[in-house]
Design a protein around this nucleic acid. Structure first.
Lengths: 217, 217
DNA sequence: TTATTAATTTAGGCTAACCTAAATTTCTGA
DNA sequence: TCAGAAATTTAGGTTAGCCTAAATTAATAA
């Protein structure tokens, strides 16, 4: 049984790997908010236990064993977020932090019960896919709103949950999962956007638009 | 904020104190399943933080601060048991173990949400009182079934939750909270009892009878 | 190409909880 | 009452994760 710490390392490595870049000691240290030297230690340990491969000075890559462990935790995390949202009525800006702790102590039995109670959901409240028990993850085919061409009509599929303030902001302008909007204008100067939601036109910063993922519609 | 370990010590000290006997190093070590020497270490630390008073070689006593911390944890534990039972339909023999982990990471906000969802329950699924937020605990006036005189009619108010097998056994003979029964006969030889539940007569061991708490009716 | 900078690893330490073995104190029963 | 047994504490050690500072390797820009 991996320790809570090991689980956190694996989860963050998986996330970084998903973003496409190489997973380096410092990117991991950044995610976990600890010193790089500590990461090096742990990475050696995890490599010894075959959770990942480590080329010194180059980076890290999950093995199949590591990937499976990471997905188990991510599944529990997202199911628990869903539960907090649906059953205990927590806001979508609160659930990520709460779930950080629970994912590690949720028994497999509780995972199943919650899955049942929720009706076997496929995505969490931010639109992130919930990995299946067999390790499959649905690929969400969405691109960042910041890449949408002028005039495009799109639908919100996912919002990055890493930043509670972003989530609050997104709610406050009337956006949520599956809402439609269109890109009125792309401002060259600062790369911000003017979007139209319903009848309202709203200016949105690049940074926000980079964290809202949409599909054309 | 007390650590998970500190919380566990305080909780078990509270339980032992409640049983009436002096709380000794070895009784605590027994509860926590660790060596006595380790308990001595921690007790010194907790005494330094004014959670308890320690007379070397004599025992330990919670301070008001320690009592309050213990009750906070016990409240979370019992609310969580209730939630597992009512919402996730876990059996009463499973919930204690599950709750052991959650009590330590449940935020105050989640505690309140769960309290609400459950309708502000006063007792947990084993009949143990749920301490109020202000630190009050309702005293359950029940005596062990093993003390009930022959011919007495009683009602089950509480069952000791420390032993899952006992709980399974109690269910299997048709007993649960608030069920009525009467003591048909007390067997002198081994101090076991014959009780009548509905129309069934059943022999029950002393050890079981000592862990079922009832009131006369 | 090479010198500087940036990233990574190594070395040496710390802390919280645990352990065993040895020393000390308290309890108990003849 | 006092000697042996039982309980407790002290002493010294372990492990997992973290840290800082120093040494090493890789990347980059003149």
């Amino acid at each position: 049984m991996p320790s809570i710490n090991v689980e956190d390392y694996l989860k963050h490595i998986y996330y970084l790997q998903e973003e496409g870049d190489a997973v380096t000691t410092s990117s991991l240290a950044g995610q976990l908010n600890i010193a790089s030297a500590s990461v090096t230690d742990m990475v050696k340990k995890l490599s010894g236990q075959h959770y990942l491969r480590h080329s010194p000075y180059r980076g890290v890559q999950l093995t199949e064993k590591g990937r499976r462990s990471a997905l188990k935790i991510i599944r529990k995390h997202r199911l628990w977020e869903m539960f907090l949202s649906e059953v205990l009525h927590f806001g979508w800006d609160e659930i990520d932090e709460e779930a950080e702790k629970f994912e590690h102590i949720m028994s497999d039995k509780m995972e199943e019960r919650i899955d049942e109670v929720l009706g076997f959901p496929r995505v969490d409240p931010h639109g992130d896919p919930i990995p299946a028990k067999n390790g499959t993850v649905k690929n969400i085919r969405a691109f960042p709103l910041s890449d949408a061409p002028e005039g495009n009509s799109v639908r919100v599929l996912r919002v990055n949950d890493a930043n509670p303030e972003l989530l609050q902001y997104v709610s406050s302008i009337g956006l949520s999962l599956n809402k439609r909007l269109s890109v009125k204008q792309r401002i060259k100067f600062d790369k911000s956007l003017i979007i139209k939601i319903g009848s309202k036109e709203i200016a949105i910063s690049t940074v926000a638009a980079e964290n809202i993922f949409v599909e054309s519609v």
